[in-house]
Each structure stands twice: as C-alpha cells, then as structure tokens.
C-alpha cells in the first residue's frame, strides 16, 4: 500500500504536487500546516482505499486463449499528405500562447553557454 513518501514520488513523476498545494490552500484559508498534513494523510488513505478496490483484479481468473483476441477495430496511420495551407491556424493557435515573440512561443532558457 502507498505511503506518504510513495504518493509524493508519484506526484513528482506526474508533475503535480499534493502536499504543497494543500498547504497553500489551507494556509491561505487561515488554517495551520497541521491541517494541511491531515488533508494529505486523508488523500493518501483514500488513495490506498482505491488501490485496494482495484486490487480485486488480482483474484480474477481469466480463461485461457481469449487474451489477445483481435478486436474488429484497428488503429491506422494517416497519410502524410494534404497539409493545411500555411498559416491557416497560426494566429488562432499563437493567440493561446501564455507568452510569444511573433509566431514563436516564449519559454525559459534551459541551456546556457556558461
């Protein structure tokens, strides 16, 4: 079953935070960090309960021979052809950028030359 450390590790893998977020909201509402810790423990125990529920799958015995039966629906690759005319969507898409420079998306510099 998941420990609080494991939940924190999963959250890091998923690029979200659980504890810090709870901490911020609870403190913002005038609560203490104890309340945040309690909220985090509740999250972890609910997470455990869900894992226990889906763990029912372990006892499920599946008949041999069916697994891998091909479904009628097949995925396909689309032809690399008939592109949209250039700039059809450029303005609409760049308008959604949080920060832009012309048509380019502005992000933090992650490679330095030092």
């Amino acid at each position: 079953m998941a420990t609080t450390e494991e939940v924190k590790k999963l959250a890091a893998l998923a690029r979200i935070t659980i504890a810090d977020e709870e901490l911020t909201t609870k403190t913002a509402q005038g609560g203490s960090s104890d309340a945040a810790e309690a909220a985090f423990r509740k999250f972890t125990s609910e997470f455990d309960a869900i894992l226990a529920y889906v763990g029912q799958l372990e006892e499920l015995e599946l008949p041999e021979g069916l697994v891998g039966e091909k479904p009628a629906l097949r995925n396909i690759f689309r032809d690399d052809a008939e592109p949209y005319p250039a700039r059809t969507f450029t303005e609409k898409i760049t308008a959604q950028f949080p920060a832009r420079s012309g048509d380019a998306l502005l992000v933090k510099q992650i490679i330095s030359h030092e």
Binding site: A2, V7, L10, A11, L13, A14, I16, E46, F47, V54
Partner: peptide
C-alpha cells in the same frame, strides 16, 4: 483534487 487523484492513480498503474 479529483483530477490530480486520477492522474496519480494512472501514474501508479503504469509504473
């Protein structure tokens, strides 16, 4: 919260 919960579950079952 629920969205984060399910993202975490998915991360777990695929790990």
């Amino acid at each position: 919260e629920e969205t984060r919960r399910r993202i975490l579950l998915g991360t777990f079952v695929l790990s």
